[in-house]
């Protein structure tokens, strides 16, 4: 079975945001799903995951009230 790159990364990001930053994790998961990634591409991906890991975790751990909706445009008071 082969899946699109986006679906692959989306699944990795959702299920294992921390583990995805481990070296070799992306390559292993990609190979298991029949997705071929060049060494250069893997290098970029792994560095991106590592450098943005803290930010991703900060956002995902942030508790937000259920009633808070996205705002279109800007707010005025």
């Amino acid at each position: 079975m082969s899946v699109s790159r986006r679906k692959l990364f989306g699944a990795v990001a959702l299920v294992a945001p921390v583990q995805a930053a481990e070296p070799g994790a992306i390559a292993a998961v990609a190979e298991a799903h029949g997705v071929s990634l060049s060494p250069e591409r893997l290098r970029v991906i792994e560095r991106v995951l590592a450098s943005r890991k803290a930010q991703r975790e900060t956002l995902r751990l942030f508790e937000i009230g259920e009633s808070v909706e996205p705002t279109q445009g800007i707010r005025r008071k």
């Binding site: 990364f9 989306g10 990001a13 991906i45 991703r56 956002l59 996205p70």
Partner: peptide, 17 residues
């Protein structure tokens, strides 16, 4: 590629906060 729809929507809600 590593953001989910939930991440994006949450970021927009953080914007409201």
């Amino acid at each position: 590629s590593f953001h989910t729809a939930l991440d994006y929507i949450k970021a927009l809600r953080v914007r409201t906060v």
